[in-house]
C-alpha cells in the first residue's frame, strides 16, 4: 500500500493534467485519472520499475481519454474558439494567462491523436520515440503529427512576442 500511495503522490498531478488537457473537462479528467490509478493498484505486482509504472499510467490514461473523446457525439473541434476559451478549466498560473488559456483552448480543436502527441511532448517532455510507444503509433506518424500541429498553431495568429 505504501508503494501505491507513493506512486499516487508522485504522479497524480501529471496523470490528472494529461487527462485534463486531452478531455478539456475537469470531471472527466478526475474520473479518468482515478480509473488509471485504480488499474495501477491491480497491476502493482507486475510493474518492474518506477519508469514502468509511469509509462503504464500515461498509456492507460491517454488511451482511455482518446476512447472517451471518440465516444462523444459533439467534438470540441466544432466549437468556436470563444466557446472553448470559456469552457477551458481555469488554472493557477504565472506568465501570460490569456496566451496559455488560448493555447489550451486551441489544443482542444485538434483531433484526439495530434492533441495527445502535443500534450505528451510539451507537458510530459516525452521524446517522439516514447510518444510512439505510448500511443502505439509509428515514429514517423508521431513526428508528422508534431510538425503539422505546430505549423497549425503558428498559423493561428498568436501573440508570441513576449
Amino acid at each position: 500500500m505504501d508503494a501505491f500511495v507513493r506512486l499516487v503522490r508522485e504522479h497524480q498531478a501529471r496523470v490528472f493534467s494529461l487527462a485534463l488537457r486531452l478531455t478539456g473537462r475537469r470531471e472527466d479528467a478526475e474520473e479518468l485519472a482515478q480509473d488509471a490509478f485504480l488499474g495501477l493498484h491491480g497491476h502493482l505486482r507486475s510493474l518492474e520499475s518506477p519508469q514502468h509504472a509511469r509509462h503504464w499510467l500515461y498509456r492507460t490514461v491517454t488511451h482511455r481519454a482518446i476512447d472517451l473523446l471518440r465516444s462523444r457525439a459533439r467534438r470540441p473541434a466544432t466549437q468556436s474558439l470563444d466557446q472553448l476559451l470559456l469552457a477551458v478549466p481555469v488554472e493557477d498560473e504565472s506568465g501570460d494567462p490569456l496566451l496559455h488559456r488560448t493555447l489550451r483552448a486551441l489544443l482542444l480543436r485538434l483531433p484526439e491523436i495530434p492533441r495527445a502527441v502535443l500534450v505528451l511532448r510539451f507537458q510530459e517532455d516525452l521524446d517522439p520515440q516514447d510518444i510512439a510507444a505510448t500511443l502505439d503509433l509509428p515514429l514517423n506518424t508521431v513526428k508528422s503529427h508534431l510538425r503539422r500541429s505546430l505549423d497549425w498553431l503558428r498559423g493561428q495568429g498568436l501573440e508570441l512576442s513576449r
Binding site: 498531478a13 485519472a33 488554472e91 493557477d92
Partner: peptide, 8 residues
Amino acid sequence: AALQPADP
C-alpha cells in the same frame, strides 16, 4: 508554460 501540470 501553458501545459504545466495542474494539481488535482
